[in-house]
Design a protein around this nucleic acid. Structure first.
Length: 112
DNA sequence: AGTATGACGTCTC
DNA sequence: AGAGACGCCATAC
């Protein structure tokens, strides 16, 4: 176990900060961390986040609001179920009113 | 130790 | 405007 604060850990911290019923995109997190081209890392970090059950990876989608990573869940429908359970409607693997449910960690800096 | 790939996003042609 | 390639960090083989 490496307790180092790598890019992955940083992603975990941000994802854990996502309010319930809200969703964010990989790019938004990457941008918040300062890496605008590190979106891939964010997604991949989610894969490694499997070690952290407290990381709501289901609240993280791509910039289009598509549940690209749903296929990585125990069941491909689990991600949609979790979002729907929080009030986020998902249709055709795509979040409805994505921009409305969209949440950006940068907003934290702006408010604080 | 080096190569290949990955839950994305942006730039370039 | 549409399609293709690159980039980022880390893991896996």
């Amino acid at each position: 176990m490496k307790a180092k604060e790598n890019y992955f850990d940083l992603v975990y911290q941000v994802v854990k900060l996502i309010p319930k019923g809200r969703v964010t995109s990989y790019g938004a997190i990457a941008n918040y961390l300062g890496l605008k081209s590190g979106a891939r890392m964010v997604g991949y970090a989610m894969n490694a986040s499997h070690t952290d059950a407290e990381v709501p990876a289901h609240r993280v989608v791509n910039r289009k609001g598509l549940l690209t990573g749903k296929h990585h869940f125990p069941t491909p429908t689990l991600m949609q179920e979790l979002l729907a359970a929080e009030g986020v409607m998902v249709e055709n693997d795509q979040i409805i009113n994505f921009e409305e449910h969209f949440w950006d960690p940068i907003l934290l800096d702006k408010e604080t």
